[in-house]
Amino acid sequence: MLTEKTLEKIKQIQKNYHSKKSAVMGALMAVQRDSGNNLTREDMDAVAKILDVNPVEIHAVAGFYTMYNWKKPVGRHHIQVCWNLSCSLLGAEHLISHMEKTLGITLGETTPDSMFTLTTAECLGSCGTAPMMQIGDDYYEDLTVEKVDKILADLRARS
């Protein structure tokens, strides 16, 4: 079930376009944000109804873009480490294995307490400050192992 708040957001998004379907991406993202960073089948069905498109088209959109989390649930903090060229040149791999070790999970997995999900990302447009990662909406740049440890500790402390 979508909340009033989400429905209101979707309504706002729809105003930006001449076509209902154009609001699909925004609506999906709004729903995902409001439901713990994950998208369920029911969510997609609901968006399909609101925007009057076939559910499979919603699924197709969700399945095309990497930012929709529908295949498996992600934890509260979704860590995406850029492993494209610039970041790799400056040690992204090292950071990844470090995090795998400290979090006790491998790439693609979520910690048992659902706190962290660790995945990779292709270039996030922050190459001048490589290596970098994105957690939730936030960019963390010029990373070192020490910085990463601190970031993770802070996040843990915060939640």
Binding site: R41, D45, N54, P55, V56, E57, H59, G63, F64
Partner: peptide, 25 residues
């Protein structure tokens, strides 16, 4: 399914080699 039959229940899910033509979930 969408252009001729007009029901549009099939779609392409996923991208690149993961792209699969199938139904909603």
């Amino acid at each position: 399914c969408s252009e001729i039959v007009g029901v549009g229940v099939l779609g392409s899910i996923g991208r690149g080699i993961h792209q699969e033509e199938t139904s909603f979930f």
